[in-house]
Amino acid sequence: MRRRLPKASDEGLAGCHTCGKVAAVSEGRCPRCGGKLHLRKPASVQRTVAFLLAAAALYVPANILPVMVMSEWGDVMESTILEGMVEFWKREAYPIAVVIFVASIMIPLIKIVALSWLCAAATGRVKPSPQVLGRIYWFTELLGRWSMVDIFVVSILVALVQFGTVMTVEPRPGALAFGGVVVLTMFAAMSFDPRLLWDQLDLEQATDTIPALPDNE
């Protein structure tokens, strides 16, 4: 059996989160930048799950409450994120409808599901390959920010469409719920420690080969 590559935590070393310096975790703080040193992010899975639950709870009001209201000559029309997308679709602006659907509806949902899956894998409840999981993690961190686009659209419309009785746009509480979902899923991704996935893999390989033969490299 091939010996696995050495891990920093085997030797009580930690890579600093902020500056990347390798230092003994017993020092407590990074000698280079002063950041706190941890072998693993503390309570990573618990914190990630907590943020995910909060995000999932807000996901419902974020999608059923209107995010803004437009009044045109006294005609008041509230619209949710989904209605905004449908409107583009009806006007045959398909690419933009798809962008909104992916950024606002799919990405938050994918992030919540993917991070829950990662938490399950990190605690050994499911056993997929860590390479795949690593890629999922990287993907969720990269894409999460784009969900913010609808919040910016609301802010832009509110700033631009201020024509007194002719036409105005005002924000509605749905926008707050939606912004909450985006920020909470970002915090969830930041709290998760991908190294736990590899720890779990090493643990499984160690137990798989308990009647271990002596290493012949």
């Binding site: 590559l5 050495p6 891990k7 920093a8 935590s9 085997d10 030797e11 070393l13 930690a14 890579g15 989160h17 990347g20 390798v22 860590p130 690593g134 991908p194 190294r195 996935l197 590899w198 720890d199």
Partner: peptide, 10 residues
Amino acid sequence: RVVCHFCDTL
């Protein structure tokens, strides 16, 4: 030395 922030390999 450098540590991988993703899998902790030294």
